[in-house]
Amino acid sequence: MIQLEHISQTYLTPEGKRFDALKDVSIHIRPGEIFGIIGRSGAGKSTLVRCINLLNRPTSGRVVVDGADLTAMSEEELRRTRRGIGMIFQHFNLLSSRTVYENVALPLELAGVGKAEIRAKVEPLLKLVGLDEHAHKYPPQLSGGQKQRVGIARALTNDPKVLLSDEATSALDPETTTATLQLLKRINAKLGLTIVMITHEMNVVKQICDRVVVMNKGEIVEHGTVIDVFAKPQSDTTKALIGNVQARDLPESIIERVRAARERRGGRDEAHLLRLSFIGGDVTRPVISECSRRFGVDINILRGTVDDLRGQTVGTLTVLVEGSREVYEQLVDFVRSCGVIVEELSDVD
């Protein structure tokens, strides 16, 4: 559906220096999926999403949407193509002098659509986003979540195949964010839209996305399914972002307990710190108790989390294993044979 091929974006600063906002970025987004692009502020994610509809024309590279190369189009062809790409924003961009109905109808009015056809399009959209009873209210009379629903309805007026969401939940409270994401999931399922989510919040990604890329300083540093990225983060950027929702770093009080155990056992070879990640059905298997019985070792659970990611359960345990190096290595091999992801930690040395 969407192919970004070797996208680079270079600017000159006021001082005349070169700034690379995007560096050779390539992404393939499948039809009908919800795709996440995440990174900290300044990572290049908003610049990248604006390349998809060519609101931002890249310095180099190709943008192909539904088989059409946008970078090779004339301005008139590009205007027509953009009608099939909806976009919602962080700050809603509603006109306060127009009612909810009139805000949603605006793109159709600008396209010269008649009143009867506008009504036939707008009224079902307001019902879809749950605002049919608020059609004649003005934006100042709405909550933040309701304003964002107006923005979503407006983005759907031209029957787009693609919906771009640029930090659309950043201005919302957690409860409203969850409700908005649930609405987007329903729209994705009902209309078959391809949705691209730009966010700096891993909590948003884990609730809604199928796949995700992680960006840092204009480059992709990690990509994969949401489950794989959460369970097996590779880059420091990903680990830091996941840490915000999974509390991956150990508090000092637990670190002191680990150090005390190692001292008690006579050194680091006798006390081992592991992070275990379980996916799907493996979450319910009593792997820890199996290991304790099989190898005769003490296993102390220091921290645990369980997340639901797109209908699959991902559990993470941080444990301290006390035993000889030989037994420990056998235990790790056994745990991995059970389908558990094992990460050996050294952050208490």
Rank of each mutant, 00 (worst) to 15 (best):
residue 209 C to G: 01
residue 110 L to R: 02
residue 81 T to H: 15
residue 268 R to C: 04
residue 267 G to P: 03
residue 325 R to M: 12
residue 167 E to P: 00
residue 263 E to V: 02
residue 263 E to Q: 12
residue 142 L to K: 08
residue 113 V to Y: 05
residue 239 K to E: 15
residue 101 Y to F: 15
residue 271 A to G: 13
residue 336 R to N: 11
residue 74 S to H: 08
residue 143 S to T: 02
residue 1 M to V: 10
residue 14 P to N: 00
residue 110 L to Y: 04
residue 38 I to N: 03
residue 339 G to T: 06
residue 12 L to W: 04
residue 179 A to K: 13
residue 203 N to E: 14
residue 53 N to F: 07
residue 119 R to I: 08
residue 342 V to Q: 03
residue 18 R to F: 00
residue 275 R to L: 06
residue 197 M to A: 01
residue 146 Q to E: 15
residue 12 L to R: 14
residue 52 I to K: 07
residue 29 I to Q: 06
residue 88 I to L: 07
residue 315 G to Y: 08
residue 39 G to Q: 10
residue 97 S to A: 14
residue 171 A to L: 09
residue 269 D to L: 14
residue 223 H to M: 10
residue 257 R to E: 15
residue 274 L to T: 08
residue 132 D to H: 13
residue 315 G to K: 13
residue 17 K to N: 10
residue 72 A to H: 13
residue 184 L to C: 03
residue 107 P to A: 02
residue 149 R to N: 09
residue 289 S to K: 11
residue 102 E to S: 00
residue 231 A to Y: 12
residue 220 I to S: 10
residue 244 N to C: 10
residue 39 G to L: 09
residue 193 L to Y: 01
residue 286 P to I: 13
residue 281 G to C: 03
residue 50 R to C: 00
residue 215 M to K: 08
residue 306 V to N: 13
residue 341 I to W: 08
residue 228 D to Y: 12
residue 322 E to G: 01
residue 75 E to C: 06
residue 144 G to C: 13
residue 194 T to F: 03
residue 74 S to D: 11
residue 43 A to R: 02
residue 49 V to W: 12
residue 286 P to R: 14
residue 224 G to K: 13
residue 303 R to E: 07
residue 175 E to C: 04
residue 22 L to Y: 02
residue 67 G to T: 12
residue 107 P to F: 05
residue 237 T to G: 10
residue 272 H to E: 09
residue 286 P to A: 13
residue 123 E to Y: 05
residue 122 V to S: 00
residue 36 G to I: 00
residue 271 A to L: 10
residue 296 G to F: 11
residue 104 V to C: 01
residue 283 V to A: 06
residue 235 S to P: 06
residue 77 E to Y: 11
residue 135 A to S: 07
residue 332 V to H: 05
residue 184 L to M: 15
residue 203 N to A: 15
residue 170 S to F: 03
residue 276 L to A: 10
residue 100 V to R: 04
residue 335 V to C: 07
residue 28 H to Y: 08
residue 263 E to I: 04
residue 207 Q to Y: 09
residue 34 I to P: 02
residue 175 E to I: 14
residue 286 P to S: 14
residue 206 K to Y: 01
residue 230 F to L: 14
residue 282 D to N: 15
residue 346 S to H: 14
residue 103 N to V: 05
residue 95 L to V: 15
residue 284 T to P: 00
residue 299 I to S: 05
residue 107 P to E: 03
residue 192 G to D: 01
residue 240 A to V: 14
residue 226 V to Q: 01
residue 191 L to K: 06
residue 301 I to M: 12
residue 200 H to R: 08
